[in-house]
Write a protein that binds this DNA or RNA. Sequence first.
DNA 1: AAAGTACTTTCCTTCTTGGAAAGTGAAACC
DNA 2: GGTTTCACTTTCCAAGAAGGAAAGTACTTT
Lengths: 100, 100
Amino acid sequence: MGLDPVIHAPVRLQIVALLAAAEEAEFGFVRDQVEVSDSVLSKHASALEAAGYVDIRKGYVGKRPRTWLKLSAQGRQAYRAHVAALQAIVARSGLRLTPE
Amino acid sequence: MGLDPVIHAPVRLQIVALLAAAEEAEFGFVRDQVEVSDSVLSKHASALEAAGYVDIRKGYVGKRPRTWLKLSAQGRQAYRAHVAALQAIVARSGLRLTPE
DNA sequence: AAAGTACTTTCCTTCTTGGAAAGTGAAACC
DNA sequence: GGTTTCACTTTCCAAGAAGGAAAGTACTTT
């Protein structure tokens, strides 16, 4: 039916949509935007990485560790396909998922 | 975050979107469109009814029993809100969930 | 009486999630 | 040097969701 089970969970949809908008996002930024705990984001990020949808990069800001997340090409494509599937479902109802 | 957990599950989203398009739909029609078994549709329909989102009407066609499902006003509103929430999330990514 | 129709319910097993808390490794503080 | 803190990660656990299979229900049809 086209919906991607890896992306469909509410938290993951939010993470992926957020990442789709940016090149890369910091772990802490995503955590705050999506409003989840460290552990929950960490788990979802790992799951998305395992699926090949997200690349996790570790580095430093000054001397402090920092983690960045970004959508892989595969993740971007999967997200687009997922949104298209949502669109197809919602379009059946006559709604358009478009603002205003 | 606005997504309605009752509606969000893939099968339920499909059911609700389908019902949103019509006045009423027959059980068998919905089952075939959504491609689930009798038991799965029956359970989801009951869950949606318990949430107050769907009205289940039983009647006959000739002498054979038949069940119709329809979105309640509350269900329609919840669906609209859910779609708006999806829209809000997806819009962040720059996508629009609009066809073409 | 037996079989079929149109679902409904129960049973059971699996998957997913989330919160809480402990763990890790490096850096900063006293 | 020992203790905290920071930035996550992992483990533990308990709860809820979901689906398939199969049995059940209430009639009707053959």
